Simulated scan of single mutants.
Amino acid sequence: MRKVSFAEFGGPEVLQLVDAEEPHPGPGQIRVAVRAAGVNPVDWRLREGQVLGAHPIELPAGVGLDAAGVVDEVGEGVDGVEVGDPVFGEGSDTYAEFAVLSAWARMPEGLTFAEAAGYPSVMETALRVLREVGVRAGQTLLVSGASGGVGSAVLQIARDRGIAVIGTAGAANQDYLRELGAVPTTYGEGWVERVRGLGRVDAALDLAGSGVIRELVELTGDPRRVVSIADLGASEFGVRFSGTAGSMREALAETVDLIGRGRLRIPVEKSYALTEAAAAHIDSRAGHTRGRRVVIV
C-alpha cells in the first residue's frame, strides 16, 4: 500500500510517499480502507520533532491520527462493527491507503468521508478545553483564533450549551464566526480594546498560539481561567497548556449526537491528494483556516 512517511525530522520536504506493508488490527482495533485523513497541527509538530516527550517516535514514521473510511478488518474482541461499515475515528499513520483505528464511531448520515475525517481530534480537543477552562452556561468565553477546526467546534458546542462567545479571527472570517453564533472581532492592533468594548470575559481559550497569553490573562483577570493548546510558553504566565488527550470514544459519541441534532457542522476548507501532504502541512502551519483541511486517499 501507499503511505506518507518521514525518515528524519525536519520541514515538509522530509515527507515521502512510500510503498509499505499493510497494517493489521490487534485486539480491540479495526482496520479501515482510508477514504480521507484529517490534517492537524500535531501532524507537522511531530514531523518537526517538537513534541517527542509526549509522543515518542521511532523513525521512519507515518503521519496522521484521524481518518474516515470503510471497515475491512476487525480485531479480536471487537463487536458492534462489521466489514463494510463506514466509520470515522482515531488511529495511527492515517495518511495511507489502510490504517488501524483504536477509537471509532459509525459515520453520521449525510456526511462525506472528507467531512467526517475532519472531526475526531478537533472535537476531542474542543470538548477537553471547554471542560478544563470551566466556562458555564450564561458566561462569556473569548476564543483567540476562532475560525479554525477546533475553534469551529468550540463555538458550536458553546452555543449548544448556552455559553456566549467572542471570537477573534481575520477580517475575511468575521461573517463565518457570526454564522457559528459568536460575536466576532479582528485580531491585530487594538484587539484588546475591541474585546473590552464587547463586554465582560469570564474565560478564554488560545487556539492559535499567536503570543496573546498575557492579554488573555488581563481580560479574564485570572490565569486559571485561560487555557492554551498552541503556546508552549503558556505556563510562564500561570496558564494551563492542554496537550493530553481525553477519551476519544466519548468525544466521537458527542460528535455523532451534535451532528444528529443539527447542532454541529465543520466545513472542509481544502482537500489534498496523498502526493500533496507537504502542501497540506505548509498550509496548516500557516494558519488562517476556516474549518478543516483533509487528505483524500
Rank of each mutant, 00 (worst) to 15 (best):
V4A: 04
S5H: 03
G11W: 01
P12V: 02
Q16C: 05
L17K: 00
A20D: 06
A20Q: 02
E22L: 11
P25W: 14
V32Q: 05
V34Q: 05
V34Y: 07
V34I: 07
V34D: 01
R35Y: 03
R35E: 14
A37V: 02
G38P: 04
N40A: 02
V42W: 00
R45Q: 07
L46V: 00
P56F: 01
I57Y: 01
E58C: 05
A61P: 01
A61Y: 04
G62T: 03
V71P: 01
D72K: 10
E73V: 15
V74R: 02
G75N: 13
G77H: 03
G80Q: 06
G84A: 08
F88R: 12
G89M: 03
G89W: 01
S92D: 07
A96Q: 03
E97T: 08
E97P: 03
F98S: 13
S102L: 14
S102E: 06
W104P: 04
M107E: 09
G110H: 12
F113T: 05
E115Q: 12
V122T: 06
L127V: 11
L127I: 10
L130V: 14
R131S: 09
V135M: 07
V135Q: 10
R136A: 14
R136T: 15
A137W: 07
G138F: 14
Q139K: 13
L141D: 03
S144H: 15
S144Q: 13
A146C: 08
G148D: 04
G149C: 08
G149V: 08
S152T: 15
V154Q: 15
L155W: 05
A158E: 10
R161E: 13
G162N: 14
V165A: 15
Y176I: 11
R178Q: 15
R178D: 12
E179Y: 06
A182T: 13
V183D: 14
T186R: 10
Y187H: 09
G188L: 11
E189L: 09
V195M: 10
V195H: 11
R196V: 15
V201M: 09
A203C: 08
D206A: 08
G209I: 00
G209C: 02
V212Y: 02
I213M: 11
T220W: 07
G221H: 13
D222Q: 11
R225C: 12
V226Q: 09
V227K: 13
E236I: 03
E236R: 12
R240A: 11
R240W: 03
T244H: 06
T244Q: 06
E250D: 08
E250V: 02
A253T: 06
E254K: 07
T255S: 08
G260S: 12
R261H: 12
R261T: 04
R261V: 06
L264C: 10
R265H: 14
R265C: 11
R265K: 11
I266N: 06
E276N: 01
A277D: 01
H281G: 00
H281N: 02
I282N: 04
D283H: 05
D283I: 00
S284E: 03
R285S: 08
R285E: 07
G287T: 00
R293K: 08
R293I: 00
